[in-house]
Nucleic acid binder design. Structure first.
Ligand code: MN
Ligand code: MN
Ligand code: ZN
Ligand code: ZN
Lengths: 142, 142
DNA sequence: CAAATTAATGATACTCGGTATCAGGTATTT
DNA sequence: AAATACCTGATACCGAGTATCATTAATTTG
């Protein structure tokens, strides 16, 4: 995975530098969404600068290696992501616990079957979507 | 509408001051989502302070007069909103044009019928949701 | 392999949305 | 009218993110 991403960097003409290697390596360890600040906190002891982390995450996003997700708290979160034919664009149907903040991902995508109908009714060409459900998870619910 | 909201303020023990009246009045003019900064720009010539605008919008949100919506750009947007029995919590199913930025609201709520099933499968008590679709609107699509 | 070129880096300063603080002001209660 | 509590605007501050820029490091060239 890491090897493939570094190859993508080189293929597109970007230099494979030590900070970029460190960032790609760190990023590959996350399963859940993470922030630039978290990555920076892990890598600053190795001398990687804050601006470089932000820049590199943006670059990995532009290369479609990372997805930008949209959490409520305010700051940007990134996440590993791939596009498939049945999911032409990255989207993440999530359910978020308001008490403990835990995030689960719905394995079935409940909107898939509605998209064609919405496109017809709204007149939009639908490209992607973002669905967040909010509630209380089982362990927080007494 | 404005009269009802100012009444709500008084009923809950909040004072009905000139800045609050001005903010409520301004807010009632918006049909689409707006930011605190926009409200402030309209009211600063009347001497209303920036902090007061942010504070009052937060208060109106806590009183369920305003909904906080979650747009892509980053800053907080607010919007008028009401809760009904079939919509126990504010939610806004929207479709956003990536070319012109226009926002349409889906009148039929496509997730309504899926919520019970998701709750059962995930084990969460589902309270609210936020759905954004992205695409290209008819007038931007050639 | 050097030298030259160009991209990328880290430090720093800055922007922007939003919040904490606080002394002065204004509604309400007595 | 005096006392109380709430509310205000000014200001300073915070955190996420970006622009700038001199320095450094990767690649290209000779
Ligand atoms: Mn965050
Ligand atoms: Mn915005
Ligand atoms: Zn929980
Ligand atoms: Zn459009």
């Amino acid at each position: 995975m890491v090897a493939h991403w570094t190859e993508t960097l080189k293929d597109k003409g970007f230099r494979l530098t030590a900070p970029r290697k460190a960032i790609v390596d760190q990023v590959s360890r996350y399963a859940d969404p993470f922030t630039a600040e978290e990555v920076y906190q892990h890598l600053k002891k190795q001398g990687v600068g804050r601006a470089t982390v932000f820049r590199t995450l943006k670059l990995l996003h532009e290369l479609d290696i990372l997805v930008r997700v949209h959490l409520e708290e305010g700051c940007q979160h990134y996440q590993l992501g791939v596009a498939t034919s049945s999911h032409p664009e990255h989207h993440h149907d999530r359910i978020i616990c308001r008490m403990c903040g835990s995030i689960s991902y719905l394995d079935e995508c409940p909107m898939k079957k509605n998209v064609a109908d919405i496109a017809k009714r709204s007149g939009y060409r639908v490209q992607g979507r973002h669905l967040d459900l909010y509630g209380v998870c089982r362990s927080c619910d007494q």
